[in-house]
Amino acid sequence: MTESKEKLDNTAVEEMMRRNMPVLDVPQSLSPETVAANLESSRKIRNTPIYIIVRTAVAAVLTMAVGIGAIYVVRGGTGKGRAKEASDIFMETDGYPSEESFSYSTETKPSDVSESKDGGLSTNGSYEEPVQDGTEHFDADKERVFSVQMATGEERIIDTDIAYSEALEIRMAYDANENARETETCLINIRESTLGTAEIYIMALEEGDISFELLNGEDPVMMADITVTE
């Protein structure tokens, strides 16, 4: 590798990628002619009488099954126990965690926060969500991307486990005013928390999108994309 010991710039890396990862020719199985033929034949199958009969029969059976299931649920739902059971099942399967699993204390100390196996944060065992909208803590050992949605006038604090005394800097990505902490969209500041750690204070000012990185020295330790809506 000729360039291994030299410093590379973005252009050199992009050239290396293009050299080693060219746009490939599609194999015969994916040629437009083969694809058209496959789509034609699958369409013909779908339009054959036997396919239509089978499809109709399957749809009828499924409709009956759903109907019977609905009757069963309606009848079973009159009992309190069953209603409670159904409610519990609903709460567990509707894709939203129960209220308890979202509990999050703003007084959480960094030592109480640990990584769970799936990369999420665990706060006293009650918080298992990976980084997502509204997550308010990050671990400096792991690069994290936050996606935060805010309404104008809203304030948000992201606490970190980095000591405030360490050199931290906010860098606005793609903003004309490099290192600015105040933009039209947001006011962003680093403050010292009561625990002596750095916390990032964000106040949404106007509708728009803004991204920033938090640097520890030269290392980006956190990246946040903020979307401010009315």
Partner: peptide
């Protein structure tokens, strides 16, 4: 993804690739 996110993530990925491929230091 937001286009700004795409640009910033590309930039971040390039920095990482440069470090890994070119032996670039942090300083």
């Amino acid at each position: 993804l937001n286009p700004n996110t795409v640009r910033s993530r590309k930039q971040r990925a390039m920095v990482k690739l440069r470090r890994l491929l070119g032996g670039e230091n942090d300083d």
